[in-house]
Amino acid sequence: MSTNLSTSTEWPLWEVFYQPNDGKPFEHAGSVHAPDAEMALQNARDTYTRRNEGISLWVVPTDQITASSPEDRGPFFDPANDKAYRHPQFYSVPRAVKKRK
């Protein structure tokens, strides 16, 4: 056990997002370690797109992401629940028009 364990270096963590196809939204793939953004992109390419899984990549420092917390699951998204009028099913349409569809 010869090594300098306490001083060994770890590069910062980056979250990786990729766009699977033209026009598609970006999806989270996982993370990579890299000293800077340029190398984070290269590492992300080598790790997550070896088979053309993506045509474009984003890398974001992990500590720059703010996420909603699980306890908020209910209350945080609550305002959406009682607004049925946001959905098209809320409205009635004359029968004749409906049939044409």
């Binding site: 060994s8 270096t9 770890e10 590069w11 000293p35 800077d36 190398m39």
Partner: peptide, 8 residues
Amino acid sequence: RKAATEYA
């Protein structure tokens, strides 16, 4: 790892 960190 050290050199790349320093370069960055």
